[in-house]
Design a protein around this nucleic acid. Structure first.
Lengths: 346, 346
DNA sequence: TTTCTTTGTTCAAACGTTTGAACAAATATA
DNA sequence: TATATTTGTTCAAACGTTTGAACAAAGAAA
């Protein structure tokens, strides 16, 4: 079993032609005869020939690889986005390299280095929670590598961005809670240095104001939105002398943590405190009570990110420029905020 | 902004030395003077030099890329395995390319082709549910590329495998349920053509026999173990004239589906029917009642898979051979099977 | 001083493709 | 028949590194 790799040279030798003829035959070059193409195809199969991507990518200056950076893959939102990116790009002959930042700035930097080093043709990314400096992203831009951001993305970079309307999401949530007769609505928020969370906070405040409800500092708590953090912040809210009657949490995992605490304190949800999360993670519909949340259209985001990349790469004289695609959020009302029992009546 | 790529040739020109000296300096070659190394480092930084991985991989015949194939990333088990693989391999200078098969045989084939084409140095994989033919995996082996299987892996291939003791897992579950005074234990199983599910079924049957409990065909239902399938099979079990008093489900998502159906029928869990799942997905501890399950040690599996790959690649005259690493399963008892109320007493 | 070793560098080929130019043969046009 | 065009292939350079061999200069040993 000669483990030697089969190259186009081997095919050429068998047929008594040159490697360049073989290469052209394999790439369906118009000047190669049908006869030769068939013969090459045949021998390639016989010898179990596997093209060397490294060599062709080096020569062509194009790797047909796209890097994807996500904070974590263990979340339905991100894994669904990734799946849709993959689907669209695979059809066009691209493959993706997925890397996780684990919400770490340092890891994100090294991920970017790796991807650039691997000569990816583009990068699709959603930023880590920790990230505030953007030099590593500017590096991508300065290399002329298309960069598409989604969900979490600072737009100071002046690149393509795909996400939902976070401001409007908050408004949907607050309007809904107000309709449920809630009067004191707290917000367990993401860190406001991240644009999307800032917008959610802004939307929350504006909507409260619009409905003549009080905006109180003690009702707005910024966190990293993990389950554990959701628990902690909920405990804090329960210790307030004047408890809220609704909590809008900017992430589903934190919302779940909050719900656990409410249950432990035997507080009825939604009767005593209504709860709304964010992202429409599958478990929100699986638990009791099911959690109301915002659907972010992850499939759409993934598809659009991939399609945007393709547009950029196909346009030879494209220059990066700020370009936002903002999708409409969708409020999914479930038991945790259905104070009026409208769901049961249906 | 000349977007031209900076190469070692550019660095060489600046310093008036040859590209090969630059290359050696960058790779810390012992014969290059400290002075030159420092100078090269400096200029490289100034010019914002980025090594071209394609070129060095081509020349070295080694890509430092490892392919990972998982059925899906949207599962805590797999994403945790992947995270640990990444962690171990990153430390050794390897990067990973994650691909999802989406449980599809066809996708798995194309994933393998892509990875081989990309010249990965090894492949770590867990098989799709659909997979029964193994020719695509044999292709990996025949190329001399190290292949490490985990969790779902047919061992007819004669390669490295890392997983838990599925047979023993079932025994743990049954012993536990018997201790809870369960007499009629059903098994919502995975397809028995997959080795791990076959072993779980075998363990289940043997344990029943050992405890002098009846093994009945109608109590063993093979499925794809999705949530929806869990629901369907549970409905079937409830229609039996002689209902089971415990159900052992070979996957957590299916167990959740089963639990939903039990709740809808107002059947008390665990009092009327006890329930045990498999995998220790995070949601099992989050819902009410929490679901008893088997911890598969995903972190260990990931680490061991990566380390096994490293051992193989570092041994110049390694030949693939059947090698199993089997971890001990751990039963996590939660409310759904705590018929005797032992948890509350603690 | 001569010879041997060490040090720091250059040289040249190689990794496996791709691609425009060149070229000969076959075919078409005048 | 002479010339132009088309067809099918070869040639040679290129992509950006790496690496063993070669080599000159400097230092050590005799």
């Amino acid at each position: 079993m000669g483990n030697k790799k089969v190259t186009i040279k081997d095919i050429a030798n068998v047929l008594g032609i040159t490697p360049s003829a073989v290469s052209k035959a394999l790439n369906n070059h118009p000047r190669i005869s049908e006869k030769t193409k068939v013969a090459v195809e045949q021998i390639a199969k016989n010898l179990n020939y596997q093209p060397n991507h490294l060599a062709s990518a080096l020569r062509k200056g194009k790797s047909n690889l796209v890097g994807v950076i996500v904070p974590l893959t263990n979340s339905n939102f991100f894994s669904s986005v990734v799946q849709n990116i993959e689907e669209v790009l695979n059809k066009k002959g691209y493959n993706i390299i997925i890397t996780q930042s684990n919400e770490s700035y340092k890891k994100e930097c090294s991920n970017i280095d790796t991807l650039l080093y691997t000569q990816v043709d583009g990068i699709i990314a959603s930023m880590a929670n920790e990230t505030t400096k953007l030099t590593h992203y500017k590096k991508i831009k300065s290399k002329g590598v298309p960069l598409i951001l989604f969900d979490r993305g600072e737009n100071d970079l002046g690149v393509d961005y795909i996400g939902i309307d976070d401001y409007k999401s908050s408004q949907l949530v607050i309007e809904h809670l107000v309709a449920q007769k809630c009067k004191r609505i707290a917000h367990i928020a993401g860190y406001s240095h991240t644009r999307i969370y800032k917008n959610r906070i802004r939307g929350y405040k504006d909507a409260l104001e619009k409905n003549a409800l009080p905006i109180e500092k003690e009702l707005i708590l910024e966190t990293s939105l993990t389950l554990e953090e959701g628990r902690k912040k909920m405990e804090l809210l329960l210790q307030l002398p004047n408890r809220p009657d609704a909590v809008y949490v900017a992430g589903d995992y934190a919302a779940l943590g909050a719900l656990q605490v409410l249950k432990e304190h035997n507080i009825k949800v939604p009767e005593e405190i209504a709860l709304v999360g964010f992202s429409d993670e599958p478990f929100t519909s699986l638990i009791t009570p099911s959690i109301s949340t915002i659907n972010q259209h992850s499939e759409q985001i993934g598809k659009l990110a991939a399609e945007t990349f393709l547009e950029r790469i196909e346009d030879p004289n494209w220059k990066p420029v700020l370009n936002k695609i903002i999708l409409e959020p969708e409020l999914v009302v479930r038991e945790s905020s259905d104070k009026l029992g409208l769901l049961k009546k249906q």
